[in-house]
Design a protein around this nucleic acid. Structure first.
Lengths: 172, 172
DNA sequence: AATGCTATATATAAGAG
DNA sequence: TCTCTTATATATAGCAT
């Protein structure tokens, strides 16, 4: 009977924690389902347990919502909720955007099944090959990016001179 | 005061619907936050409104959870919740699997910032180039996949055709 | 581990400001 | 559009099965 107020704290006992975790996860998923039904919107709830198991509910499907989200989300949310409607359109600086257009199109292409073939059962060598290829492409793209960025800076760079060096900290 | 039982139906009035939508979305996000705090697990709630606006809350961040999920999720969820722990390992036909290991690794790489540089401001030509490259790689991988699949079929094909309809309707 | 029960905690629909 | 209130709907902690 909810004997005491539920602390917003970590439950100590392992087994109890797991039980409660499951209960609450289901509740969250149910709430998401009702939410979707009520408003006919796309939503997804993803959870990763301590053991690393991934659970998810989504309408019309987790992947669908994922696609939509990745397509619309220009910024990342670091634990804080955030609206993502308009465009961010900042100046063309050197810092990396969380999800650029190119990245989004790639993700979109992948997510939308343009690969058309199940390749999940490939050997690992193929996978490594693929990654190497992508890394190569990335290098090309990066080189081109710097080139373009450099020339753009020459004509449109406002006054705030210095500070940020153009090759410093990107994402991880 | 919740005059009547809340129908699990679509609300008619547009303005009211939006208000209620916002309220419930916040509630869902709060519940997710408490959920994360209580169990110290990773979770994310993503919603896309009718207008196409994307909202999201996640701990430690939406992207983090996304990465984890994509890394752990072998199958897609079509509106029905589903546990995602084991492997799916289906036959390698010509139809697309929702998200394969390779795809996931690609997505993961992209999401985790291994591209390290902002390339969103590139010209469109670069983008087309990149896509062409990826398509090429895909062809290679596909060819290899069929090769492997063919040889594997020779020795281990059981025969139960139907079961899960993994060759009918795919995504988009 | 999963399900049912029930007292209590939380969420929230409708108003009001 | 947001916040507050308040009556009511839902979720759920602890327990039993």
């Amino acid at each position: 009977m909810v004997r005491r107020r539920i602390e917003i704290e970590l439950i100590e006992d392992k087994p109890k924690r797991h039980t409660t975790f499951t209960k609450r996860r289901k509740g969250l998923e149910k709430k998401t389902r009702v939410f979707c039904n009520k408003f006919d919107v796309e939503a997804a709830i993803l959870t990763v347990s301590e053991a690393g198991n991934a659970f998810g509910y989504g309408h019309p499907s987790v992947d669908m919502v994922l696609d939509r989200y990745l397509d619309r989300a220009p910024e990342e949310n670091n634990g804080v909720e955030e609206r993502l409607d308009g465009e961010v359109e900042d100046e063309v600086e050197e810092a990396a955007a969380p999800l650029t257009e190119v990245e989004k199109r790639i993700v979109d292409g992948i997510e939308n099944g343009k690969w058309e073939v199940a390749i999940g059962d490939l050997g690992l060598e193929e996978l490594g090959e693929l990654e190497a290829e992508m890394r190569k492409i990335k290098s090309n793209v990066v080189a081109r990016a710097r080139e373009i960025a450099a020339s753009e800076k020459n004509v449109s760079d406002g006054g705030s001179s210095a500070g940020n060096s153009s090759s410093g900290s990107f994402r991880s």
